[in-house]
Design a protein around this nucleic acid. Structure first.
Length: 421
RNA sequence: GGAGAGAUGGCUGAGUGGUUGAAAGCGACGGUCUUGAAAACCGUUGAGUCUUUACGGGCUCCGGGGGUUCGAAUCCCUCUCUCUCCGCCA
């Protein structure tokens, strides 16, 4: 959520910045709603004040044993107009809030302006794509021979699921273990385990609701749970409605979880293999930081995700997403893209975003400023470190030999006692 | 699943219709005292929001939502959560 003050006081400039994201604000409507809100709220509060004062007077008069009947009559009339004003105010306020809740974050000034993903900016490239003296197979061809089973997954659940058996299942587990160990021992994260279902307040807090509801799996029960599309939802919401002491910051969590995405709207896209499944494993990095430190933290979290790829010796590049490609909550995002030989291109394997106060405002996640003693919004960041399913894909494809065997990366050999899968 | 008890400020905990945003204690902060510290004493100490250049003033909030009433932390309905006992169970 944007600061409502921007809508009130700086609407034109805000609209101009959002225009780069391809979002057009309905300025006349916002202005009109805001004007009505102000009028109604002032009127409502005056009426409430009037009611409070008079009601107190009744209490005092009664205590003295005076006749209070005339006072009753006045208040009954006042209450009628109060009720009416209250209804009008609530309606306008709801309308305005619904509108505000659907406005995405404002891109940071360092974000490249662009019209599509083609305008994303390459920040750096690491490693050299391997030269093959044979035609590299894709992860599906490689995987099917060693325990990657799509037909069985389809039977159990449907399309966009996978069954992994034997060493392949173990390889995925080794990747999780490796990433968690790296981030907890080398990068100073605290490991955290969280629910894989979340309520709508949490999904609203991180920005998946109301706009991105289509991407979620809803649980069909009274509690109104959703399966988490990323543990960012659960982990970031640990600080929802909290006022943290400033010495608690920064908070750095690492969390392994499955992620569930409906992939509505991506029909026909990456239908083959493990690239885009309804369920996948991810190790997520979360920072809760002082607002002055969030861009520093953004570089740090990105480096931490990169480190995983470096240790696995997987070639990758870092992109700064342009204004048109930014996610709803993000002010700035670096995507990490890993080299996939079968596709002869780089594919997203991590996304590291600074949401600034966008999520914390929705969540009321604050820290106490030691100078003023006042609560202020924290900044929140999230980054995949990494998407485990896609890392598995990258390893299969980059570490294959001519016979279709997969060499185990050096960094994983302490987790998996084999040279090859 | 059955029976019961609860949910109040950073914490403990009073408050069952009328100057109660809320006693008291603890904690925290500031001050006095002290060479310094402790103790003691005095004072301050919730959040959100609206309005205002500012000073200030107002409104809302006692788990969430709804209702009764001139007036609700207090009464009613409902939901959520917590605790105790029983049953079941990874």
């Amino acid at each position: 959520m944007l600061d409502p003050k921007l809508i009130r006081q700086d609407l034109a400039a805000t609209a101009a910045k959002l225009k780069h994201r391809g979002v057009t604000l309905d300025i006349p409507r916002l202005n009109s709603l805001e004007e009505q809100r102000k009028t109604l709220q002032t009127r409502l509060q005056d009426l409430q004040n009037d009611r409070n004062v008079r009601s107190k007077a009744i209490g005092q008069a009664k205590a003295k044993g005076e006749n209070v009947d005339p006072l009753f009559q006045e208040l009954k009339e006042l209450n009628d107009s109060l009720k009416l004003t209250e209804e009008q105010f609530t309606q306008i306020q709801t309308e305005l809030n619904d509108l505000l809740a659907r406005i995405p974050n404002i891109p940071h000034e360092s974000v490249p302006i662009g019209k599509s993903e083609a305008d994303n900016q390459i920040i750096r490239t690491w490693g050299e794509p391997r030269k093959f003296d044979f035609t590299p197979k894709d992860h599906v061809d490689l995987g099917e021979k060693i325990g990657m089973d799509f037909p069985t997954a389809t039977k159990i659940a449907g399309a966009r699921f996978v069954v992994l058996r034997g060493t392949l299942a173990k390889l995925q587990r080794a990747l999780v273990q490796f990433m968690l160990d790296l981030h907890t021992t080398e990068h100073g994260y605290q490991e955290i385990y969280v629910p894989y279902m979340a309520n709508s307040e949490s999904l609203f807090g991180t920005g998946q609701l109301p706009n991105l509801k289509e991407d979620l799996f809803a649980i069909n029960n009274d509690a109104g749970f959703y399966l988490i599309p990323t543990s960012e939802v659960s982990v970031t919401n640990t600080v929802r409605d909290e006022i943290l002491e400033s010495d608690q910051l920064p908070i750095k969590y690492v969390c392994h979880s499955p992620c569930f995405r409906s992939e509505a709207g991506s029909y026909g896209k990456d239908t083959r293999g493990m690239i885009r499944n309804h369920q996948f494993e991810k190790v997520e990095l979360i920072h809760i930081v002082h607002p002055d430190k969030s861009y520093e933290a953004h570089e740090e979290i990105t480096r931490h995700a990169e480190k995983v790829l470096q240790l696995l010796e997987l070639p990758y590049r870092v992109l700064s997403l342009c204004t048109a490609d930014l996610g709803f909550a993000a002010a700035k995002t670096y995507d990490l893209e890993v080299w996939l030989p079968s596709q002869n291109c780089y594919r997203e394997i991590s996304s590291c975003s600074n949401t600034e106060a966008f999520q914390s405002r929705r969540m009321k996640a604050r820290y106490r400023d030691p100078e003023t003693g006042k609560p202020e919004l924290v900044h929140t960041l999230n980054g995949s470190g990494l998407a485990v399913g896609r890392t598995l894909v990258a390893i299969l494809e980059n570490y294959q030999d001519e016979k279709g065997r997969i060499k185990i990366p050096l960094a994983l050999q302490k987790y998996i006692q084999a040279d090859y899968v």
